[in-house]
Simulated assay, not measured.
Amino acid sequence: MIGVVLWSDNSAGKAVFWCEDHGDLAYYEEPIVEIGGGSGFDTGDMVQFDISVHRKLRIAGNPRLVQENAGEHLPDALRSDTIPAKALNRTEKSRKTAQIIPFTPKAGQRRLGAAQLKA
C-alpha cells in the first residue's frame, strides 16, 4: 500500500498514514524505539507499507520512504477542506485530461424522496 504521513512522532516511533485506497487510516508504531531514534518520517512524506487489520484497525508494517514532502499540503488541506494555491498550481500543471468540477446545490434546491420519484 502507498500512503502519505498525516502525523508522526519520531521520538515515540509512531505515525498515521492516509492510504491510497482512501479507506481507514493506517497506524504505525515501531516495535522497539531507542531514545532519540525513530522512523524519521515527516508529515507529507509518501511511504510504502504492508497492511494488516487488528481489532478493526489498519496497522502499517515495514514502512519505506518513497518520496519526501510528496503531500506536504495534505494535512492542512484535510483540516480546511481546501487545497493551497501552491499545491493547486502543481496539480493543474500535471493534469492533462480531466477537469473535476465540484457539485454544489443551488439555494432552494431540495432532494426528492423515493415516493416523489415514483409519481
Rank of each mutant, 00 (worst) to 15 (best):
M1P: 11
M1V: 13
I2V: 15
I2T: 14
G3R: 01
V5L: 01
L6T: 01
S8W: 02
S8N: 06
G13A: 02
V16H: 02
V16M: 02
F17L: 03
C19D: 10
E20G: 13
D21G: 06
H22V: 10
H22N: 14
G23L: 06
D24Y: 08
D24F: 09
D24L: 10
L25V: 11
L25T: 08
Y27C: 02
Y27V: 03
Y27A: 02
Y28G: 00
P31L: 07
I32R: 09
V33G: 03
E34A: 09
E34S: 07
G37H: 02
F41S: 00
D42M: 10
G44V: 03
D45I: 01
Q48G: 10
I51S: 13
I51L: 15
S52A: 14
K56A: 10
K56V: 06
K56H: 09
R58W: 10
G61D: 12
G61S: 15
P63G: 03
P63S: 04
R64S: 11
V66G: 06
Q67R: 11
Q67K: 12
N69P: 01
N69L: 07
A70R: 03
E72I: 06
H73I: 01
L74E: 03
P75E: 04
R79C: 12
R79A: 14
R79N: 13
S80I: 03
T82I: 07
I83D: 04
P84H: 05
K86H: 10
A87S: 15
L88A: 14
N89C: 07
R90E: 15
E92G: 04
R95P: 01
K96A: 09
K96M: 07
T97S: 12
I100H: 07
P102W: 04
T104S: 12
P105Q: 10
A107D: 14
G108R: 06
R110V: 11
G113P: 02
G113E: 12
A114C: 08
Q116E: 15
K118Y: 10
A119T: 12
